[in-house]
Design a protein around this nucleic acid. Structure first.
Length: 408
RNA sequence: GGAGGCGUGGCUGAGUGGCUGAAAGCAGCAACCUGCUAAGUUGUUAGGGGAGAAAUCCUCUCGAAGGUUCGAAUCCUUCCGCCUCCGCCA
């Protein structure tokens, strides 16, 4: 959630931020108006409380009873204001970093660089799904019968490739000082909301388990962040970096008809994720660091990719700054998003109350998340980029020590 | 799933209706002292919110949310978490 103090102090700045994220900036005025009334009422209510406390102390029971009636009314009123105020705040996304391109949607994203060589084939490159079906690596039809659309069976070498990717990522990131973690894949609503995922829930994009009122995570980010809920870091311990592995679940409610074939966009996939708790003064550095790690991983796999700076209109709800890495897919003759790298600044830390102490006046840590490997999409990228003329697939050299085979 | 116990400040731990936002100890910080020295003395140290230029004042918070009461850490209800025993189980 946004800093209320900041909305009061710099409403114009927040308005601009909201506008750039395609959110009605009138919210700010509505909020401030409500906030003023809330403050007046809070004062009134507190004063009444003070009066009650004194009367009570002096055992003036009859008088206290009268004051108490008044307090009940005031507090009921205050609660309405409070609820309304909170609902407005919940409608406000994080405000973007001023260095980021202002834009309406993905068309305004800025390609920063293209890295690696696109493979040259002396044949017509196949789509990953065609390859995978021939090699018996993915089966969508059977998953359809069992679980419905947007599920898939990963089979045979594809499974081993997944574990190779996971092991490769873990080994590399642990060597860099990331702490490995396998987090829960279900979370309570208040935790999700604290992590700024109210939208994920409200848009029905999250799977919900009504019996237990739990939500399946869309990313391990959702449960790695709140692992330190209510904690106070010593600034000497920052940045604290985690590498998490989890299955991710998404209903893809808003994307009916989009990428319906194959495993590019599915309800369930596995992901290795990086997560950092950073000193606010150094979170930009941390953001660049995470992007650097992502690039290093892509280069190790020798996959051609480009780095895209996401425009304000296309940015995640809680993000102040976001990069995507898009990998070249020869079978589709285009780049597709495979990784993202976000700085949520204090938007999430305020929501789940993660602070740090040290010299300086900022108290909430900054939280950042970055994909290491979204396994499904990496398998897609590998199949398409490493395919051979006869419809087989060479395993990237960096992964061979984990797969123990060189070709599928 | 059944039975019981517990949940207090950075930590340990008192506190069962009225100056208790909370004893004491530890830890931390500051000052002083200085040779019983990996010591002593004194002071200080929770968070949120509101008012105020500030000093400061008010208010809320003892797992969470409600309730009883003039007044609740203390009583009641529900929920959450932890522990022990039984059952089940990868």
């Amino acid at each position: 959630m946004l800093d209320i103090e900041l909305i009061r102090q710099e409403p114009e700045k927040i308005k601009k931020g909201l506008q750039s994220k395609n959110v009605d900036s009138k919210l700010v005025d509505d909020f401030l108006d409500l906030d003023n009334q809330w403050r007046d009422l809070t004062k009134e209510s507190d004063d009444a409380r003070a009066q009650l406390n004194v009367l009570s102390q002096d055992r003036k029971i009859e008088e206290a009873k009268k004051v108490k009636e008044n307090i009940k009314e005031l507090e009921a009123k205050l609660k309405d204001f409070d609820d309304h105020r909170n609902s407005l705040i919940k409608q406000m996304p994080n405000t973007p970093d001023s260095d980021w391109p202002i834009g309406k949607d993905e068309d305004d994203n800025v390609v920063m660089k293209e890295v690696g060589e696109k493979p040259k084939f002396d044949f017509e490159p196949k789509n990953y799904l065609a390859l995978a079906e021939n090699l018996n690596l993915i089966n969508i039809e059977r998953a359809g019968k069992v679980s419905g659309s947007r599920f898939g069976y990963l089979l045979n070498e594809a499974v081993l490739l997944e574990f190779a990717l996971v092991n490769f990522a873990m080994e590399m990131l642990v060597a860099k000082g990331f702490s490995p973690v396998i987090p829960p894949v279900m979370a309570r609503p208040e935790v999700m909301i604290g992590m700024g995922k109210g939208r994920f829930i409200d848009d029905k994009d999250a799977f919900h388990l009504p019996e237990d009122d739990l939500y399946l995570v869309g990313s391990s980010e959702h449960t790695i962040g709140p692992m330190h809920m209510n904690d106070v870091f010593d600034d000497k311990d920052l940045p604290k970096r985690y590498v998490g592995f989890s299955t991710c679940f998404r209903r893809e409610a808003g994307s009916y008809g989009k990428d319906t074939k194959g495993i590019l966009r599915v309800h369930q996939f596995d992901k290795v994720e990086m997560f950092s708790f950073a000193d606010p003064k150094k979170s930009k550095e941390e953001h660049e660091f995470l992007l650097g790690v992502q690039e290093e991983m892509m280069q190790a796999l020798k996959l051609p990719y480009r780095v895209v700076q996401i425009s304000t209109g296309d940015m995640g709800w809680g993000d102040a700054a976001q990069y995507d890495i898009e990998t070249w897919l020869p079978g589709e003759n285009q780049y597709r998003e495979t990784q993202s790298c976000s700085n949520t600044t204090d938007f999430q830390s305020r929501g789940v109350n993660v602070k740090y102490k040290g010299p300086g006046d900022n108290k909430y840590v900054h939280m950042l998340n970055a994909t290491a490997f979204a396994i499904g999409r990496m398998i897609i990228a590998i199949l398409e980029n490493y395919q051979t003329k006869d419809g087989h697939v060479v395993v990237p050299e960096a992964l061979q020590k984990y797969t123990h085979f060189k070709e599928i």
